[in-house]
Design a protein around this nucleic acid. Structure first.
Length: 581
RNA sequence: GGCCCCAUCGUCUAGCCUGGUCCAGGACACUACCCUUUCACGGUAGCGACGCGGGUUCGAAUCCCGCUGGGGUCACCA
C-alpha cells in the first residue's frame, strides 16, 4: 500500500497559534491512523516544513518557539528540523525524549529559504515553456488597477494581455531589471475534490496570473508550497479553510508542472480543509485579543501615570498613550504581561505557549483541540494521542466553524488534574512551576503531594492550584485577615470563635513536630476536641481556618496545617489570638 | 461588492450520505437537591436545539429549491 505523507508548514512569524496546533495535530494523527488502516507496509510520515519566505517577518526565534511548542504537545515530526533530548520535559510515562525530525528520505532542507535554487530551477523551466513570464508593474500601477476594478464592483484579476512582448520582457529580465515572475495561468476551470467539503468548481474568470517569484528572488507561498509538496511526496494536505480559495491556484500549477528530475507530471494531493476556530463572540482568535483585554482593564484603572511606570521597561509613555487610544495598536508582549500582572488580569490564552504558562496539560489541550472539528462518532470525548493515532479519519471532520470554549477546556483539564495521584500531580506541578511559578519552590518536596491533594480538587490549572495554597506563600506575620470572616467566625457565637480557638490551640500543639504532624493527626485532633466539647465541627474548624489562612474558605484544615508545618501553624494561631483579643 | 464555504441545545457536537427506531443523544455551562468543618470534589434530577419558506414523500433534522444568517477570500503575507 502507498505511504501516507502529511506535513505541517508554519510560517515563523510568532508563537504557535492554537489553531495551528490543531492543524498540526490533525496532520500527525491522520498520517498515523491512515497508514495503519492501509496495512502493514504502508509507512506514515509527518513532516514539518518551515515556510520562511517572508524575509521581513520570519525569525529564528519564532522557529525555535514553534518547534518547542509542538514538542511540548507531543506532536512529534518524523522529518524536518532536528531537535532533541533537551529543552522540554516529556509527559511522565510518555515516550522518552528522543530526537525529533531528520531527513531519512533526503527530501530536505526543510526551510524554504534554503531551497531557492530548487524554486529557481522550476522558474527557469516554466519561463522556457511560457508557463511563466516576467512582469514589471509597479506597486502604484497595480494599486490603481485594483481600485479601478473595485469601482466597477469587480474583483481585480491580473492577466497578461495580448500586447505583451515576451521576448522584450525576457531580455529585460536577463538584463537584471527588477521584476516578479507570474504564472501564465491557462483559462480552464479547476475542480477541487475536497475530502471534507466535497467537489468545488472554480471558473477560469476568477483565476489570475498570480506571482510565483517576488522581486526579492524569494518564491511566493503558492509556488513554494506546490513545489515542496511534490518534491517531498506529500499525499494529504490538511489545512485551515482560509486556504480553500488558494487551492485552485495550487491545482492549476500542479497541472502545468512536470518534475525536472523524472519528467513526471506533478501529482495533486488529497485536500482536506478544516473548519476555523473563533472566539466565543465570533471574532478571530488573535494576539490582539490580549491587547484588547489589557486595554479595557487599563482604561478602567484610569491611573495612567501608574501604568506608565509599570510598563516603563518595555514601552514608553507615548507608546502607552497611543495604545490606549488606538484599538489596532499593540504593546510589546513583555509590557502587556507586566500590565496584566499589575491589574490582576488574566490575559486570554491564544498561543500554545499561553496555555502552557496557564498550567494546562499538553495531553488535555490535544484532546480538546481534537474535538474542535472532529469527533470519533460516538459519545466518547476523553481520549489520548494513541487513540487519535488509530482512529482519526478525514470523513469525521466537520464542516462548520467552531468557537473556542475555555470553560470546557478548563473542565477537561480539571478532570485530568483530579485523576492524577498526588505524587504525579506534584511532579508535574513542580516541573511547570520551574518555568512559570518560582514561589512553589518554597514548598518542600515531602509536603508537595499534600499540597497537591489539597489543591487538585479545587483547581482547573496548575496556576489555579498555586492560588489554592497561596496562604502558604505569605509570611506568618503578614497574613491579612478578612474582616467579614473575623466578624462572623471569631466574634460571634457562644462561646465565640476566638474562645474556641484559644481552647483548641493546645490540642494542635500537642502533636509532635515533623513526621507526626500529618493531615490525619491534625484532623483527628480537631475532631476529638470538637467531640470533647460537644461542639459541631463548623464551630471549631472555621476559627482555625481564619487563623491559618485569614479567610473562611480554604482546602481541608489537616492539609492546610500540614502544608504550613507545626511551627507556622502555631505561630499563626498565636498571632490570630493576639490580634483579635 | 465578486467568488467560495457553511447552517442541530448558550457552546462543542451525535444523528443527515443509506428518509420512519429522534416529541432528537452526549459533553461543557447553567439551575435545584443530596453529601459536607468552609470552598471544592462527588452523586441525583432539571432547563435547553433541528434558522425561515416552499417542495418531494404515506412519512423529513435527514432529499431538492429559495430566502435569511454566519464565515472565508480577493497582496511581490502565509
Amino acid at each position: 500500500m502507498p505511504d501516507v505523507i502529511t506535513r505541517f508548514a508554519p510560517s515563523p512569524t510568532g508563537h504557535l497559534h492554537i489553531g495551528g496546533a490543531r492543524t498540526a495535530l490533525f496532520c500527525w494523527a491522520f498520517a498515523r491512523a491512515e497508514a495503519k488502516r492501509r496495512g502493514g507496509d504502508a509507512r506514515s510520515t509527518f513532516l514539518l516544513r518551515v515556510e520562511d519566505t517572508d524575509q521581513a517577518r520570519s525569525s529564528e526565534q519564532a522557529v525555535a518557539g514553534i518547534l518547542e511548542d509542538l514538542a511540548w504537545l507531543n506532536i512529534h515530526w518524523d522529518e524536518g528540523p532536528r531537535i532533541g533530548g533537551t529543552g522540554f520535559q516529556p509527559v511522565p510515562g510518555a515516550q522518552p525524549p528522543t530526537a525529533i525530525g531528520g531527513d531519512a528520505r533526503r527530501v530536505g532542507p526543510f526551510f524554504q529559504a534554503q531551497r531557492l535554487a530548487i524554486y529557481n530551477q522550476y522558474i527557469d523551466w516554466m519561463l522556457g515553456h511560457d508557463l511563466a513570464y516576467p512582469a514589471f508593474d509597479t506597486a502604484e500601477q497595480l494599486d490603481a488597477q485594483r481600485k479601478a476594478a473595485a469601482d466597477r464592483k469587480h474583483t481585480y484579476r491580473y492577466k497578461r494581455d495580448a500586447s505583451y512582448d515576451r521576448d522584450a520582457a525576457l531580455a529585460r529580465l536577463r538584463a537584471g531589471e527588477p521584476c516578479v515572475i507570474r504564472f501564465n495561468n491557462p483559462d480552464a476551470p479547476v475542480h477541487v475534490a475536497d475530502a471534507v467539503l466535497g467537489d468545488i468548481t472554480f471558473e477560469p474568470e476568477h483565476i489570475d496570473d498570480f506571482v510565483l517569484r517576488k522581486a526579492d528572488g524569494f518564491p511566493t507561498y503558492h509556488f513554494a508550497v506546490v513545489i515542496d509538496d511534490e518534491l517531498m511526496g506529500v499525499t494529504h494536505i490538511l489545512r485551515g479553510q482560509e486556504h480553500l480559495n488558494n487551492t485552485p491556484r495550487h491545482v492549476a500549477l500542479q497541472r502545468a508542472l512536470r518534475r525536472t528530475d523524472t519528467d513526471q507530471p506533478f501529482r495533486t494531493p488529497v485536500y482536506a480543509h478544516l473548519p476555523l476556530i473563533f472566539n466565543p463572540d465570533g471574532s478571530k482568535m488573535s494576539k490582539r485579543d490580549k491587547d484588547k483585554a489589557a486595554r479595557d482593564a487599563a482604561k478602567k484603572a484610569a491611573d495612567t501615570a501608574a501604568l506608565a511606570t509599570v510598563v516603563a521597561p518595555d514601552a514608553s509613555p507615548e507608546q502607552l498613550a497611543t495604545w490606549l487610544d488606538d484599538k489596532r495598536s499593540q504593546l510589546p508582549t513583555n509590557a502587556l504581561v507586566r500590565l496584566a500582572a499589575h491589574l490582576s488580569l488574566d490575559l486570554p490564552e491564544i498561543e500554545v505557549e499561553d496555555f502552557r504558562a496557564s498550567g494546562y496539560l499538553p495531553e488535555v489541550l490535544c484532546n480538546y483541540l481534537a474535538l474542535l472539528g472532529w469527533n470519533p462518532g460516538n459519545d466518547l470525548e476523553k481520549f489520548d494521542l494513541a487513540f487519535l493515532a488509530t482512529t482519526f479519519d478525514l470523513d469525521r471532520i466537520g464542516k462548520t466553524n467552531s468557537k473556542f470554549d475555555r470553560d470546557k477546556l478548563r473542565a477537561f483539564n480539571a478532570d485530568a488534574l483530579r485523576a492524577m495521584t498526588p505524587e504525579a500531580f506534584a511532579a508535574r506541578w513542580r516541573e511547570w512551576a520551574g518555568h512559570y511559578e518560582p514561589r512553589l519552590a518554597s514548598i518542600p518536596d515531602g509536603t508537595l503531594p499534600i499540597a497537591a491533594r489539597a489543591a487538585a480538587p479545587r483547581a482547573s490549572t496548575f496556576r489555579d492550584a498555586v492560588a489554592q495554597i497561596a496562604f502558604a506563600f505569605t509570611a506568618d506575620d503578614a497574613l491579612a485577615f478578612d474582616p467579614g470572616a473575623v466578624q462572623k467566625v471569631l466574634r460571634k457565637g457562644e462561646p465565640t470563635g476566638l474562645e474556641t480557638l484559644r481552647d483548641l490551640a493546645p490540642s494542635i500543639g500537642a502533636i509532635p513536630a515533623n513526621a507526626a504532624f500529618t493531615p490525619e493527626a491534625i484532623d483527628a485532633a480537631i475532631k476529638s476536641f470538637a467531640e470533647s466539647r460537644s461542639l459541631g465541627m463548623g464551630k471549631v474548624a472555621q476559627p482555625l481556618r481564619v487563623a491559618l489562612t485569614g479567610t473562611s474558605v480554604s482546602p481541608g484544615l489537616g492539609d492546610v496545617a500540614a502544608i504550613l508545618g507545626r511551627d507556622r501553624t502555631l505561630a499563626r494561631i498565636e498571632r490570630c489570638l493576639a490580634a483579635h483579643s
